[in-house]
Simulated scan of single mutants.
Amino acid sequence: MRCEIRHITEYRYPKPAWDSFNEVRLYPASGERQTVRSFHLLVEPEAEVYTHRDYFGALVHHVHVHAPHTFLKLQAEAIVDTHAVPDPGPVPFSALREVSGVDREFLTFTARVPAGDWPEVFGVKRPAPGDDLPTFLMDLTTHLRQRFTYSPGATAVNTPLAEFATHGRGVCQDFTHAMLAITRRLGIPARYVSGYLYSGGELRGAEATHAWVECLVPGVGWVGYDPTNDCLARERHVKITHGREYTDVSPVRGTYYGGGRGELDVDVRVYAEQ
């Protein structure tokens, strides 16, 4: 599937701001699942832009606007081809004993994905060593989709996971952090994925950047699961990057001097053809 993506972030300030620094993580990843055909980052007003690869391999654009300004526009445009990959075959849960090295980093708990008895909190039955891991992960994806309500505006970017567990309403970030907390507690390496979603009117979370989970299935690799939509991450999912939690993959973040209390508008459009 060929996906054309336009992502516009606009800041408006009541007073002039200056020395605005922004980190932009919007360059899609390349790999087995997808190929980046083109990418352009347009910045208004004129800015100094340079790039580097972060710890997780994402290409980060650093945008520095020196001059006073009351408006900043970051427009990312990309064309990405996504590819079908086979579903994982049977793998016993006991195969996770073989996980070692850097993959174990994604068993680490963080501020947004804290340690806790999350399987019990979310009503998830612990699997037995002989249970099939991919089946368990798909069942978990379904469980979270059925247990919680997708409700834009119900949570904020800093809403604690425990609050989402209690109130039962949130967005894709909350569903993803919940699945990360459960899988890591059960010894399944799992990472937070930031990306885009071509909805076609059928899937939830396409109005901005989307989030889902990649879990390590021994002998297979990293497999994407989308608990917001109860599905595997397939051709409609366009990956930008991954990390331990949202903080590692925030699409745009930055600082500035002056300006007063600014306003932020984000518009994401994904067009696709088979």
Rank of each mutant, 00 (worst) to 15 (best):
V193C: 01
F122N: 13
G262W: 03
E44I: 05
I182M: 00
H7W: 00
R33A: 14
R236I: 03
G168P: 10
R191D: 06
H52E: 15
R37S: 08
A78W: 02
W222C: 05
E23V: 04
S94Y: 06
A208N: 00
E10V: 13
A115W: 09
R97H: 14
T135D: 10
T110E: 03
L26F: 09
T159C: 06
H143N: 04
R2S: 13
A162F: 07
R253P: 00
V193W: 03
T166N: 05
Q146A: 07
F56M: 05
E120G: 07
V80L: 02
L216I: 08
F71E: 08
Y198N: 04
V63K: 03
E120H: 04
L42M: 09
P14A: 00
V217S: 12
D139Q: 15
Q173F: 07
S151C: 11
A128Y: 05
Y225H: 02
F71V: 15
A190E: 01
H61P: 06
A178C: 02
R244M: 00
G254V: 12
R244E: 04
I8T: 11
L41K: 02
Y196C: 10
D103E: 14
V80K: 03
S30H: 07
W212I: 01
T209G: 12
R261D: 06
G31S: 10
S194P: 08
P160Y: 02
H66V: 15
V43M: 13
Y13A: 10
P88K: 14
I240Q: 13
R253S: 12
T70H: 06
N229Y: 01
F39K: 03
G258C: 01
F175S: 07
L137E: 11
T149M: 01
F122Q: 14
P160E: 12
F148G: 08
V266T: 02
H64S: 11
K73L: 02
E77Q: 12
A162M: 11
K239P: 02
F148S: 04
L96H: 07
R2D: 10
R2G: 05
R112N: 01
P68V: 04
S100D: 14
F109Q: 09
L140Y: 03
R6G: 11
R145G: 09
I79L: 15
E10M: 02
R234Y: 03
F93L: 13
W222V: 03
N22W: 08
H143D: 06
A95F: 10
T82D: 06
G89W: 13
E263R: 13
P28Y: 09
T82R: 08
R145I: 04
A111W: 05
R269L: 07
D132P: 11
G168F: 02
S20R: 07
V91S: 03
K73C: 10
N229Q: 05
P86Y: 07
T141F: 09
F136S: 07
D19C: 08
T135Q: 09
A47H: 08
V80H: 01
T155N: 02
E245V: 07
P129S: 15
L203V: 07
N22M: 10
V223D: 00
L133A: 09
V268L: 06
E235A: 07
R234K: 13
R261E: 15
S199K: 01
E23M: 05
I182E: 00
W212Q: 00
I8M: 01
G254I: 09
L232M: 01
R204T: 04
R147P: 06
